[in-house]
Design a protein around this nucleic acid. Structure first.
Lengths: 106, 106
DNA sequence: TTCATACTTGGCCAAAAGGCCAAGTAGCCA
DNA sequence: TGGCTACTTGGCCTTTTGGCCAAGTATGAA
């Protein structure tokens, strides 16, 4: 097993993992539309604020999002404009899979 | 929490999760280059064949890959041509993050 | 029909992820 | 100062994930 190859894959995996959760995808989608504070995101995903904060910390740690404190609030925003491409590919697969399952069931 | 929104995010998350592992990313990358049998992929990621088989089953279950048995071998191939776009976005983020960390360290 | 190869699945265990509550920190306002 | 709000972090627990080994299935060859 080539070490360099593995390291590259591991790095990529960290980024992908940071999006591999429904709440985090919802958060990223919201941020694609503009910055949001933790409160707003907490309301969006309907979880404990501490949980949301941890999600955000994780996403930030891999460079997916950035944060800025203004007053009492911390505002997060996407740091990559390519997220929409990412989602487009994912949606292609989910849609293809949905129709494939329908074929089986139908 | 809007149920429909959550379901959509959950579906997407399943696909993203299926790529959120170094071995599975390596596998997907290899398959982007053409079909491979389990043996070849096992060699590639240097894990137990049973482990690789489970990775493949997971990836297949979300519609990321397809399989075909020919003789003793089972050949897997990517079912989405958009994987390269997906990777491009991920790499943008990892590269951006790498330089960001260098700024901090340097 | 027996044997070998290629793969999948069951069983089990260790490690990681994800959640909440409670406690801590930081900024604003009275 | 004191208290309120917004957020993060520590602690702890449950669930999920990922791994291997061993056993099972399926196909081709002798």
């Amino acid at each position: 097993m080539n070490r360099a190859l593995w390291n590259k894959a591991a790095q990529r995996a960290m980024v992908v993992k940071a999006l591999a959760h429904p709440s985090r995808l919802l958060i990223a989608e919201a941020l694609a539309d503009g910055e949001r504070c933790v409160q707003e995101l907490t309301e969006l995903v309907a979880a404990d604020m501490s949980t949301v904060s941890r999600h955000l910390t994780l996403m930030k740690s891999v460079g997916l999002i950035e944060s800025e404190k203004r007053g009492l609030n911390v505002y997060y925003r996407l740091s990559c404009p390519c997220f929409s491409d990412f989602l487009r590919c994912v949606d292609l697969i989910t849609r293809r899979q949905a129709t494939a399952l329908q074929r089986v069931a139908g």
